[in-house]
Write a protein that binds this DNA or RNA. Structure first.
Lengths: 196, 196
DNA sequence: ACCTGAACACCGTTCAAGT
DNA sequence: ACCTGAACACCGTTCAAGT
């Protein structure tokens, strides 16, 4: 039975997560120790471990907390039948990720951590599936104009969703390594590079 | 003055690197300790540290050793004036990376590690610039048919090279998270998604 | 229930001593 | 010069004790 309210507990977790992000952006995932987060948050080691079972769960919480509410906004467009091209959906997805406030470098570091840890990997696949469903929904009106039967529309929307996810991941990984690039430049260059 | 030949030293570094890759593919970057590499290689801690200053330099050596010789093959095509489309160059680049034998998951983990460590980050930018130059050279014949002046050709080749690099990074990050996908599927879906 | 901080196990790196 | 392996510093996690 919780002695404090759910809201207090959630606020505490957020407080720790926000302190963690501040240090993570400054020092990177590998160089950030629990001691750093202890210093930044003003709490103790035990306090952090009473809210998160380990560092991986904290990382997972950060990604989920910042990303999930925004994924749903993406999905909403498609379900209202508004026609968005894959380029539109890509643009929205990249704005969504930018709005989390997490730098591309930090996002790529989280991918790396998650891929090296079985428990985190499962959580990543979960988040990714959620995202893929949202993209598929957003692309369904567009797919409806390209394909005939309901099955074809669904298949086209699903495979295009994966491609849009790839493009977003490519943009993030690329800007993390090579530095910033305007989204419009990226999309324009993509179109020019792939026309026959 | 080296007591052993350069070849012996290089062979020793390769032996350590190959043992390291075996463990890394099995356990991931984060879960792999120097002790694991010691066990796998049959050498001692000190022996490894007499060939690499630290874990980051070992990781850097692995990427460089597996990737560099193959980047040059990529570049060679363009300098012979053979016309390759961006899709062709992307296909070749992805085969090149597949031929290194490193799994997409391990590549993404290396990006994450490099992005969190200043010394490794510098090395990553170096490798990436090398790669970008090779892609630019390979794309110059194609750019020659699209643009007029020499400057325009150079600018188009350079910006398209960055885009092709993004597409390759997107493919790698995407297959690392969601599982394998045929390169032809990816390219076909890209083209369909981006045509007006 | 939540929190404190000392204690523990483990890991990357160093270094005196050997060949 | 290359190698050995014990020693050291540091970090994630646990846990007995406090409120």
């Amino acid at each position: 039975m919780p002695r404090v309210s759910k809201e207090y507990r959630e606020a505490r977790r957020d407080e720790i997560a926000r302190a963690a992000v501040r240090v993570l952006e400054r020092k990177g995932v590998r160089e950030t120790s629990i001691a750093d987060i202890v210093d930044e948050s003003g709490l103790s080691t035990g306090a952090i471990y009473s809210h998160f079972t380990n560092k991986a769960e904290l990382a997972q919480y950060i990604v989920g907390r910042f990303l999930f509410p925004r994924i749903d906004e993406l999905e909403a467009g498609g379900s209202r039948g508004i026609m968005l091209t894959p380029a539109d959906v890509l643009g929205r997805m990249l704005s969504t990720i930018r709005d989390t406030g997490l730098s591309p470098a930090l996002v790529v570091q989280f991918w790396g951590e998650a891929l090296g840890d079985p428990a985190m990997h499962a959580q990543l696949v979960d988040t990714a599936s959620h995202l893929l469903r949202a993209l598929t929904a957003a692309l369904t009106p567009w797919a409806g104009r390209r394909a005939g039967s309901t099955e074809e529309v669904a298949a086209l929307a699903r495979s295009t969703a994966r491609t849009v996810a790839s493009l977003a991941q490519g943009y993030i990984a690329n800007t993390a390594v090579f530095g910033p690039r305007a989204v419009e430049d990226y999309v324009a260059s993509l179109t020019a590079a792939l026309e026959p």
